[in-house]
Amino acid sequence: MAVARRRIDVGEGAAALAAWRKAAESPSDAPLPRNVLATAVRFSLEEVTARAPGNSVEVRVPPFGVTQCVEGPRHTRGTPPNVIECDAATWLGMVTGQLGWAEAVAAGKVAASGLRADLSELLPL
């Protein structure tokens, strides 16, 4: 299996994730810059793919990124059979451990379809 190609520098990605976590823990009037939010999401999607390489599950965090991960049958055309989709705040909450997978799914914050659409074993990172 091929190694996931990184587009985000690990140091830059970790810094963006730390900035998001800090902003989430102590909200202020100044929102996190969009480019920092985008970097945190994209870096964490790359990290999930690095930890669980494969093509059987598609993780979507619109409008910032999408990745395929988890070993299993390769998906090549049309709508994938295993899809996970959520907003950036929900995704980063799960990635950092501020929000649990089961809690997010039960609250309707995550749309997960398919037999393999469960990242509870991978999150938090």
Rank of each mutant, 00 (worst) to 15 (best):
T79K: 06
R34T: 04
G11A: 11
D118S: 15
A107V: 10
A18S: 09
V110F: 09
A117E: 12
A15Y: 01
G93W: 00
E85V: 13
V61T: 06
G100D: 13
I84Y: 08
E103S: 12
L115R: 10
D87C: 13
A88H: 14
A50V: 11
V61P: 00
L123I: 03
G11I: 04
V59A: 14
T67I: 05
A38F: 05
S120I: 13
G93P: 04
A16W: 10
A18L: 07
E46A: 05
C69P: 06
E71A: 11
K109P: 01
S28M: 00
A38T: 01
V105G: 10
G114S: 02
G78P: 13
L17G: 03
V61N: 04
W101Y: 12
E25T: 10
S56K: 09
L17A: 13
G97I: 05
A40H: 09
A14C: 11
E103M: 11
R116I: 10
V36T: 15
P81F: 10
S44D: 09
L122T: 14
T67D: 04
G54I: 12
L125H: 05
A104N: 11
A24T: 10
T67H: 01
G11Y: 02
R6Y: 06
I8Y: 03
P63D: 00
V61M: 14
A102R: 15
R5M: 12
